[in-house]
Design a protein around this nucleic acid. Structure first.
Lengths: 340, 340
DNA sequence: GAAATCAATGTGAACGGTCACATCGACCGC
DNA sequence: GCGGTCGATGTGACCGTTCACATTGATTTC
């Protein structure tokens, strides 16, 4: 085996090693690291050269220990497979890095209190200074407030209670837009596939649906409780299509809409001829469904960025704007006027 | 505004605060933290009580500083939107946490050297003890080996050179299975949609395709260079279907297959009647495409778990098995025997 | 019954940074 | 020409752990 580099071994070079080599005090090296204004350029250069030749890397642990600032933000996330959360996480990491923060994520195994405590513990162990919570169940927030967390946190879903922490795409408006689209096409018998029961977003989309229907004085049937998966959409479709007592469906995400489309084809029916379908999210694949899906687009990356801005606002005393982001209807081929 | 909890403020409780309250030395507290064997149960309990009442949390930075072990593994990832990488990351985090390690991820902005250095810097700043590289471009590995990284790393894609680090689903076999399936159905004019040029997986799948075709003495046309997106699959389909000089397509991922299916429908053709299609990955939605997609399943979670096992093997001197995982063909409705 | 062993605990020095303060010329104004 | 200010640098303490070693009694061993 062959090892490259110097084998001076032991620990890595420290600030004092650099100081010795550069012929200055350790404090001077520290000043270089922190861009202290009053430094003679020649000295700084000597220090930089010494760092270079020792392959010096500042020790984060030491710095964190003395400053008690970790410059780390924690993400508590429930299901990173969903398109929305995944996009947001990416944007958050990007924005955090630009602001000089690191990100550590903790996946929730479930939504029971012990899982929440475990995930939170993990983040707190990392000395996260702030939290972004992308765990869209109400009970997660209940658990968090119970634990009387010491760090500021921001959530990506607007909850009922803690308005200051919240930041989100306006789910209710999105659902209303989608529903209105179907109503304007003449549909009056509309089913709604929701997400899992206690998901905040699922709840908000359902409320938007019901509100819009009510505004148009159209009677509604009970929403179908789903689980976000294409499999569920398919099964629900098979079930519902046995009766054909509806002409349109508003699915609260694109995956379930995909499954539903599958069931429609299998029943020998046509979308949008026999049934119109609207989804939610506008995942990249939605444009290529059969037929291409009419859906509601959400700007997740922007959400992630604002999220960090808001959190850093709380952390560093700056301002933070917390308004919501407007969703947008993308009309494709899965919706058509009601056949007379 | 109302704040709960004690406002003793200042810094959080340290090991010495606990020691004082429990009437022992700080070292004894440390022993409790590290499960030292010889301790009187009564003493341990007194310490634990003191911790409880002070809401003591060990300071990770201090521990890392003195032990110079961060118990953190870094993930270098290129595109976390793809289904495969996302699943693997999740499994890695889970496995790492079980082994008592934390995970920090760095997203590659691009594949140019500066982006790689930046991401690597980020991980090294966090004192990652080991790296998992899920950046499937050859040039990323070239850059990494150039940088003479001091930490062990494992990759999820089998590269040509560094066999010890590699761990992967056997892409070549997977591609051969998919191709063989089409050949056995009687197809002889088969197009192949590949992933982006320098992606290791794309390359391996292409090699598998070519090898199988060659084994059957079937002439091949040049593979179509794609970019993994459904949009590309759609555009490629529109283009290719103008000539109809083929009866089957092997797409190197499911998204492109989805787009291709879209183009098939739009051309008024039928899948699998007029053209058979096989995908790769078996994303959860593939079962609901129109028609449900025949594809190659990869066990990503298992991959992630083994990945951590392998890395920890290098880190802690244990063993680590690095064999590959066999992929599996999932036959659905997008493939049919060649029409006579 | 004295030496040796061992379980249980304590003492002080690291680890690698930053902070508060001290020092020491050079320059400035009157 | 002398006190004051300021730029550039040095000194020593400290952050919260663990580590190496020391110190107790109590128990065992012959």
């Amino acid at each position: 085996m062959h090892v490259t580099g110097d084998v001076t071994s032991g620990r890595a070079a420290s600030i004092r090693d650099v100081a010795r080599l550069a012929g200055v005090s350790h404090q001077t090296v520290s000043r270089v690291l922190n861009d202290h204004p009053s430094m003679r350029p020649a000295t700084r250069q000597r220090v930089l050269d010494a760092m270079e030749s020792l392959q010096y890397r500042p020790n984060r642990a030491a710095r964190v220990l003395v400053t008690s600032r970790s410059r780390t933000i924690g993400i508590l996330i429930f299901n990173r497979f969903h398109y929305g959360p995944a996009s947001s996480v990416l944007a958050i990491e990007e924005a955090a890095r630009i602001a000089g923060y690191s990100v550590v994520t903790a996946n929730l195994r479930g939504t029971d209190p012990s899982a929440i405590v475990e995930a939170l513990d993990h983040l707190l162990d990392q000395a996260a200074e702030g939290l972004v919570v992308i765990a869209p169940q109400q009970r997660v927030f209940d658990a968090i407030s119970t634990l009387s967390i010491r760090v500021p946190y921001v959530t990506l879903q607007s909850t009922e209670h803690e308005e200051t922490h919240a930041l989100s795409v306006d789910q209710i408006t999105g659902a209303r837009i989608a529903t209105r689209h179907l109503l304007e096409l003449g549909h009056r018998s509309i089913y709604h596939l929701t997400g899992p029961q206690d998901w905040i977003e699922a709840e908000a989309r359902m409320r938007g649906f019901l509100a819009e229907m009510s505004d148009w004085d159209v009677p509604t049937t009970a929403p179908i409780l789903g689980d976000w998966t294409a499999d569920f959409g398919y099964r629900a479709g098979r079930e519902l299509l046995r009766y054909r007592d509806f002409t349109a469906v508003f699915s609260s995400n694109d995956q379930m809409a995909l499954g539903f489309l599958h069931a429609v084809r299998e029943a020998g029916l046509d979308c949008p001829g026999d049934v119109s379908i609207v989804g939610f999210d506008d995942i990249p694949e939605a444009a290529h469904f059969a037929p291409p899906l009419t859906t509601v687009r959400q700007d997740f990356p922007e959400l992630g960025r604002r999220c960090v801005a808001l959190l850093l606002g709380q952390l560093e005393g700056g301002e933070g704007y917390s308004n919501t982001i407007a969703p947008e209807l993308v009309v494709r081929a899965s919706t058509a006027p009601l056949r007379p």
